[in-house]
Design a protein around this nucleic acid. Structure first.
Lengths: 220, 220
DNA sequence: TCCATTTGTCAACACCTGTTTACTAAACTT
DNA sequence: AAGTTTAGTAAACAGGTGTTGACAAATGGA
């Protein structure tokens, strides 16, 4: 009798580990790609992700136990690129004159480079499933703390308590978050719109910093 | 032969219009209710919403042409309660001493009262389908403008351009939005946690307002 | 060289999805 | 009192969903 299964298995790429991590990446990328448009993470279907990664649905389980597990990996990945972004931003020496504007410009540039990761975070930050949302919130908290200690090192923050520094850092994070979401909803070719966003965010941050500089903790 | 359809149609409530708007409400409420937990709007299924409203799936179409149409109604409803909330807040005369804190307290109180509407907006603001997201963004813009003209009427904002007033209003909206989302993720019985949120938000807003008061437009 | 491991395929499963059709009975209209 | 409108039902449809189990073939190690 003829073999019940016709000759299967894709072309024989290099080593086994490499092939495995290749399709794993393909699955992750397929998921990110499908979230480019309307879909949130919970709208994705395992079958479509698998198909778009060039693999049969059942193969998905060789890499992730469930869709949500894949989601958690995306959280980690996305915040890894965010941290890398911040590290780059910190090591780049900027003119002290327009620090704020240049920082915003640079940061939003990174956002456009790593569009899909930032888009993922933006979409799942409030809308996602509880475990994913909590993971994101935790990362944002951490990130805010780091920013607060950065602020503590900058001159003129002597009179501000560390608690208030955290609140100020929160304001900054929040402001930049909105800018990020606006950028993600803007055609990258529309330079005027991007400039407008940078401009507005720069001004908002300077207003916040102005407030911080006249703020004296505790004393009302 | 026996009738192919057993005696149908629910108990004979009042007038026809009233019965109609009753089930219409039931559908809207069912949708909101199902979004209490994990689900975003796009996770809802017409069938489940109908069932939970005590009606057969096909009956849904007597009230809305599609799920998305129902979603748009929810946007309208939700912002109607937001506007009502702001109207109440404006007409309530508050002690000039702790205006900010009292406003925050009151607003977040309304958020808890109309939990489901605010939860809907929070979830769909960034995650939702494009038409819904755009509708929400438009409403937030409008809302920010109103706040900006409010600010223009308060003393000490003489030197600030109307464009910058809008940016300041944006900061305030953004800050209160985050507070709203935190409240929605907090057990309403946990008074300490709520107080903490009110406290932090109050301080953040006062920092922003301090920044605004020393801000002079145009001149760097 | 032979055997074990592993990454993938195929096929079937039980179920849930939105939508359409034909039908009913209560509520309104005349 | 007779006729029309309408909010609702029941049943079927074509198709998509996650998950499972048995099998294949290439890779890696003995």
């Amino acid at each position: 009798m003829p073999p019940r299964h016709p000759p299967s298995n894709a072309r024989p790429g290099r080593s086994r580990d490499e092939r495995k991590s290749r399709t794993r990446r393909a699955l992750l990328d397929a998921a990110l790609e499908q979230m480019r448009g309307e879909h949130g993470f919970s709208d994705l279907s395992l079958r479509e992700v698998a198909k778009s990664a060039g693999v049969v649905p059942a193969a998905f389980y060789r890499h992730f136990p469930s869709m949500e597990a894949l989601g958690m990996v995306l959280v980690d990945e996305s915040f890894a690129t965010l941290r890398q972004t911040m590290r780059n931003l910190r090591t780049t020496r900027l003119p002290t004159k327009h620090v704020v504007r240049k920082s915003v410009e640079t940061f939003l540039g990174y956002v456009q480079e790593h569009e899909l990761h930032f888009r993922f975070i933006a979409k799942e930050r409030y809308g996602g499933s509880t475990p994913i949302r909590m993971a994101i919130r935790q990362e944002v908290r951490l990130f805010t703390s780091e920013l607060a200690t950065d602020l503590a090192r900058t001159p003129g923050t002597g009179k501000v308590s560390s608690g208030d520094l955290r609140l100020i850092a929160g304001l900054i994070v929040q402001t930049v978050s909105l800018a990020t979401e606006l950028v993600l909803d803007t055609d990258p070719g529309d330079l005027d719109a991007i400039t407008q966003i940078v401009d507005d965010t720069d001004r908002q941050l300077r207003i916040v910093l102005a407030g911080a500089s006249v703020w004296k903790s505790e004393g009302e």
